[in-house]
Amino acid sequence: MTDETTHALAYTPEDLPKKESFLKPHRILLILLFAALVVAIAVFMRWDWLPRYLPRLGSGILVSLAMLFSTAFLGFLLAVPLGLFQVTGPSFLKVPARIFCTVIRGTPLLLQLWLLYYGLGSLFPQFPAIRQSFLWPYLREAWPYGVAALTVSFAAYEGEVMRGAFAGVPAGELEAARAYGMGRWTMFRRIWLPRAIHRALPTLNGETVLQLKSTPLVATITVVDVYAVISKVRQETYLTYEPLLLLAAIYMCLTGTLVVAFRYFENRIPTRGA
């Protein structure tokens, strides 16, 4: 996926509004209208259920964030070799890496998740060896399947980005490194990888926001994230709009926080000549 498409799909730091732009008259009007809307929603809709669910909502948000960060981290670790193999690997690594990325990117995440949890997961207990192993208590839970599916998905998308990033590092820099007498490993560690990551960073922001947008799918395999808590509210109160509006607001806040954090880090990384 190209940089621009990621940007079109995910809210990224470039979209953050600028401070001075809030003071235009039509914006003030819009903000007032929005405030009125929020007040109307708060007053005229039913929110009496909210206090009862606050603790669960809190832990749900934590589960969602844990899902996001663990899978983005693990996925990125996987993405580096995936990208590298596709650029420079021998064909017995290149071809599987290619196929992996194509297959994962070509099928819906929801399907992958169900395939892992209900398909693969239901095979495990038929093998007594697995059932008696130390892994079984984990395999009984839902979250390892969620982490696995989200990690694989992130790795495939980000692997594609890393492939472009590795390929895009100017050949001259690598030649210069070689001319300095660096070995292959040193060159990779000191020049190629840092430069590639640097090139991939803006897309990484977008991909992470996209990953956040994928996390609620784990609720369909009984992981109790914030989406699952809201589903529970919907089922117990028979309300539709209020919980969903709150959920949308929660995700807006999470995305917003994430994006502001990215902006902060971006400003701290020197970008001269990137």
Binding site: D15, V209, L212, P216, L217, Y227, Y241, A248, Y251, M252
Partner: peptide
């Protein structure tokens, strides 16, 4: 902004 910040699953339900 809303569509790019909120998960598709939530948008689809809404």
């Amino acid at each position: 902004t809303v569509v790019r910040a909120v998960p598709e699953l939530v948008l689809i339900l809404l």
